[in-house]
Amino acid sequence: MTASVLPPRPDESELGPIGRGLQIVPNDGGAGWTLVAVIAALAFLAALAAGAAVQVASAAATWREAISHEATIQVKPDPGRDGEADLARAAELARETPGIRTARILSRDDAERLLEPWLGAGLDLSDLPVPRLIALELARDPKPDLSRLALRLKIDVPGSSLDDHSAWLSRLAAVTAGIVGFAISAVILVLGASAGAIGFATRGAVTGHRDVVEVLRLVGARDGFVAWLFAKRFARLGLLGGLIGSAAAAAALLGLALLSDNGASGGTGLIAALAPSPWTFAAMAAIAVADAAVAGAVAWTAVKRFLKVHR
């Protein structure tokens, strides 16, 4: 009956895990899955909002990029003037402006083709006064002084006008900002709702395992250690829910893109804008990560507060 006659060492494979695999606080099973489902549903909405915002912002950037080095001079026909001379003069003024790379006079045919979508093909427009256009290609550096050019045109070619798309661009910027702001508010709201659900679930879990928590503290666990156990668990649930929700949102977006591709092959404009970019998926993945972070932080705080109250 002394230490010298110990039986042979037991089979240590039976010890059970101590490190990663050990659940010091038992799992809740069902309750955990309910929370994952709630977080997944919320993450789906947040990821859609975030993805849409990224799509809109990047499409807007593409459009902006495409048209920011274009401008057009329009010369309205005036029976009292020599249209061809006016066109040539306007083009010359443009070419003299530093920062304008090229000024190309669109032929009458070009102009008529541009009107086709509105007036229909096969119409003989030769008798009609069709406005003529000069396409300008702008350099990024030096930036052309377009307002000065506009004034010169007003003086030399009274029937002309310069359109640098700035009105359209500023409206695009406003709409983009609105959509992005809306999406950010939606993401914040949804994360807030997830945080509420997680806080509720954490308080349930810590109350449900009160006896375990008490034993842990009595055998020397710091409050921070206990809080960390719960934070880890809920961060994992948050990540899982977030991934499920984001993946569903990504799948929905891809499906939408595929549908629209079927309709219009090699689509442009709105259709092209629907094709998801890597940034869109990055934003959706960020939602999952944010869910995990929010879950961990909320659980940690909730448990710490519980332990403080229940000394």
Partner: peptide, 11 residues
């Protein structure tokens, strides 16, 4: 085993 190791584990 895990129960007995608990005080060391939580430290």
């Amino acid at each position: 085993y895990q129960n007995v190791a608990l005080p060391l584990l939580v430290q």
